[in-house]
Amino acid sequence: MKKKIFTTVLLSCLGVIVAVAAVFASLDGKWGGVIATPDGNTINVSYDFKVDGEKLTGTAVSPMGDVKLENGKIKGDAFSFSVNVNGTDYPHTGKAYADSCAMDIDFGGSSSHFVVKRVK
Rank of each mutant, 00 (worst) to 15 (best):
M1E: 13
K2I: 13
K3V: 10
K4Y: 01
K4M: 09
F6C: 12
F6P: 09
F6W: 14
T7C: 11
T8V: 05
T8E: 07
V9D: 03
V9M: 12
L10P: 09
L10W: 03
L10E: 01
L10Y: 11
L11V: 03
L11S: 08
S12T: 15
S12L: 15
S12E: 08
C13Y: 04
C13L: 15
C13H: 08
L14G: 12
L14R: 05
G15A: 06
V16P: 00
V16S: 02
V18F: 08
V18A: 10
A19N: 05
V20H: 06
A21M: 09
A22N: 13
V23T: 14
V23E: 12
F24C: 01
S26T: 08
L27T: 11
D28I: 03
G29K: 06
G29Y: 06
W31Q: 01
W31I: 02
V34W: 02
V34F: 00
I35C: 04
A36M: 07
A36P: 06
P38T: 00
P38G: 06
P38F: 05
D39R: 05
D39W: 12
G40Y: 04
G40C: 04
N41V: 08
T42F: 11
N44F: 10
S46V: 07
Y47G: 03
F49I: 12
F49S: 05
K50A: 10
K50Q: 05
D52H: 00
G53D: 12
G53E: 13
E54F: 11
L56V: 09
L56N: 00
G58A: 05
G58N: 04
T59N: 13
T59F: 03
T59H: 14
S62E: 03
P63W: 08
V67W: 07
V67R: 04
K68A: 05
N71Y: 06
G72H: 03
G72T: 00
K73C: 01
I74C: 02
I74W: 02
K75L: 07
K75H: 14
G76T: 07
D77P: 12
D77C: 08
F79Y: 15
S80P: 13
S80T: 15
F81K: 00
S82N: 15
V83N: 08
V83F: 06
N84L: 13
N84Y: 12
N84T: 15
N84E: 11
V85C: 04
V85S: 06
N86S: 14
G87M: 05
G87V: 02
T88Q: 11
T88I: 14
D89T: 14
Y90N: 06
Y90E: 10
P91T: 04
P91G: 03
H92C: 01
H92D: 09
T93P: 10
T93W: 06
G94A: 02
G94W: 02
G94S: 02
G94I: 01
K95D: 08
K95G: 15
K95M: 14
A96V: 10
A96K: 10
A96T: 03
Y97P: 07
Y97H: 07
Y97D: 10
A98M: 12
C101F: 05
M103G: 03
M103L: 14
M103N: 01
M103W: 00
D104Q: 15
I105R: 02
G108T: 08
G109Y: 02
G109A: 05
S111M: 07
H113T: 11
F114E: 08
F114H: 03
V115E: 12
V115I: 09
V115M: 06
V115T: 13
V116F: 03
R118I: 01
V119C: 10
